[in-house]
Design a protein around this nucleic acid. Sequence first.
DNA 1: CCCTGATTCGC
DNA 2: GCGAATCAGG
Length: 175
Amino acid sequence: MEWTDEIIARLRQLWDEGLSTAEIGRRLNISKNSVVGKAHRLDLPARPSPIRRDISGARPSRPAPARVTGPTLPSLAIAAEPVPVMPHVTAAPAGGASTVAAVRTAPPRPTLVASRPAAAPRAVARVPACCWPIGEPGTPSFRFCGDPAMNGKPYCQPHAEIAYVRVRDRREDVA
DNA sequence: CCCTGATTCGC
DNA sequence: GCGAATCAGG
């Protein structure tokens, strides 16, 4: 925004007329925050504020609203191979498509699955057990599949088929 | 919810 | 310097 002398003059006038910051913003076609910010910088007389902001200077805590600027998820470009889909997506929480996409493209998070299923008894060969979750996590009946996992994968054959989908086939999700 | 003005702080 | 985000009262 370019604060030309004229605009500043108009701001001053409207400010003096006692218009609200939002109204001034509407007339100058700028945001109310711009008006307030500029007025503050110009040392214009403060309006009666509804806020009382200095209770003995003791400001509780302003944890610096950390704005997220960059992407949080790993780039999709690296997903040349079949992308693991987080299993156990029960009732999709009525969220937008973006939420769904984010969840489905997120890499598997081991911590989320808690610990892997208990290892098979020593007598039997130690075949990695399928860690596909069954039941509602946190409930007593919750358990992992436990069937023999496929070689190199955390799931058994049927669950691996569900868990891994090709990126190519996910176009519809992105749309 | 809507409105208000003030302040902070990444850019 | 700018102003969105945030706060906080009505």
